[in-house]
Design a protein around this nucleic acid. Structure first.
Lengths: 279, 279
DNA sequence: GCAAATTTGTTCGTATGTATT
DNA sequence: CAATACATACGAACAAATTTG
């Protein structure tokens, strides 16, 4: 018995899924049926097999209904580097909306939740302020086609408000964008930014917002964007958490052909990811 | 009993870990001890609780030894946008090595495994060649401090070999870099590239190479980099898979202060990620 | 709208196997 | 070899969610 039975069952089911015998969206045999199909294994054993598939993101189980092969979501492509078509920083507010439209999706954003917080270590470091200093936190959730897509929180030094950028603490959208507003009121001009991209398992809040299956291996992508002004000082720090299964981040570096950078192109692209023979 | 018992136990253990009562590297109580601590719950119930922590990447279990709080790895920061200090495209070969040295790490790469393959759909699309056309695949695994860090496969149109870039199919490193070599032999100059960044659960090969705990929620980051020449035609496509728990990708866009872009800075940075109050 | 049937979720008990010390 | 600790597997009962009649 080299391989435990529940793993053998899991592998067999996986191959049935990948061969197309079990199509996306279709229901797996019930636990009772699986028992019969697999040598009258115990119900707990077939459950372990199914759990392993849930965990790998191949199927989802719904209490009272059954287990279903996952329907692949068409990922939303987001240009994170400066987007020629919208003119400014990708992945945020206005640019996000316009990219969504270009991919024939409907984007919405919740009303910002604004808070005054004392800066956590990482934020303080990014903004080059003292740990514990006051910062304005503006938090928004972004939806596409009415489904949860990402959540982002921007942090600004409280000093900006004191210097005259009063609207920073207002709980509504600042049109056409906070960056533009800071330019008008304080003369700050964003000249560049640095993104730090990482991936990790979701925490509780993220799991519930993104409606991630409980035991699934779903991951989130976290980007930390620190934007700088012409003086070289940080203007803001924006932390965005993306559901990994429905987003793809695009960075263009140097000269990239026009037709490649257009959002329509990335949208239309085949989803035949992975399987790119890395082994 | 709103919450099932195994979840309550899991949450209690989680809080004991996060409060620091159970430190990284230390051993959790054994299953037998946990039974006693939690109201004589069944062994299966405490096991379910522990599984849920394994799954979230907070602990690892080792047969015959026990369950241990995970030791956080210090992530390796990789500048993916063009790196001023090394002069060329981040995240690959030479640049990777030099960034590792700057962060006081030791980087190694395996000897390239070279194959002639017929292009899969996604690769063909990236390289703008016919699906099934021949491509040269050059695969390497990268280690840092002797531990598995990433694996990457570059695809080049077979046409390049026919046109004179014979060394493309040699199974050894091409110094100082393939891009440089293609410039010399074919006059191709890389003027830019597009990166597509996504995250997903690891497949079997990745799990074993990265030595990821079996049931853990570990994710991999996948970057697909397509590089373009001055004519606007694709030169190559490089697919890199990174273990998400030990890598952080850095993209600089526009003007970012020198001290921020230096590898030493990113290395020294506090690891106080997450907890950035996204909820 | 309710009751029954179906399906997955939780919890228990028990036995045996495998890895490590 | 023995003791310890986790891994696999079985059986059973009841709970909760959903669909169906």
């Amino acid at each position: 018995m080299a391989e435990p039975m529940y793993r053998q069952i899991a592998e067999d089911l996986r191959s049935r899924i990948e061969s197309g015998e079990l199509k996306p969206g279709s229901q797996l045999p019930t636990e009772l049926e699986l028992r019969e199909q697999y040598d009258n294994a115990s119900r707990n054993t077939v459950r372990d097999a199914v759990k392993s598939l849930v965990h790998r993101g191949l199927v989802v189980t719904r209490p009272g209904q059954g287990t279903f092969v996952v329907d692949r979501i068409v990922p939303f492509a987001i240009t994170m580097s400066t987007d020629a078509s919208t003119g400014f920083g990708g992945g945020e507010g206005v640019a996000y909306m316009s990219q969504a439209r270009a991919q024939l999706r409907v984007a919405e954003a919740t009303v910002p939740r604004v808070e005054i917080q004392s800066a956590a270590g990482a934020i303080a470091q990014e903004l080059k302020i003292d740990k514990g200093a006051s910062v304005v936190s503006r938090h928004q959730k972004l939806l596409i086609d009415s489904k949860p897509w990402s959540m982002q929180t921007s942090f600004y030094p409280m000093k900006f408000v004191e210097l005259g950028a009063a609207r920073l603490v207002e709980a509504n959208n600042i049109e056409p964008g906070v960056v533009h507003y800071l330019g008008e009121t304080l003369g700050l001009k964003q000249v560049g930014y640095q993104d730090k991209v990482s991936a990790r398992p979701p925490n509780e809040g993220e799991t519930s917002f993104f409606r991630l299956a409980d035991g699934s291996a779903a991951a989130v992508i976290e980007t930390v964007r620190t934007a700088y002004g012409s003086s070289g000082d940080p203007i803001r720090c924006t932390v965005t958490v993306w559901a990994a299964d429905r987003n793809r981040l695009i960075y263009n570096v140097g000269d990239v052909p026009e037709e490649i950078t257009s959002p329509a192109h990335t949208a239309a692209e085949s989803d035949g990811t992975a399987e790119l023979a890395n082994n």
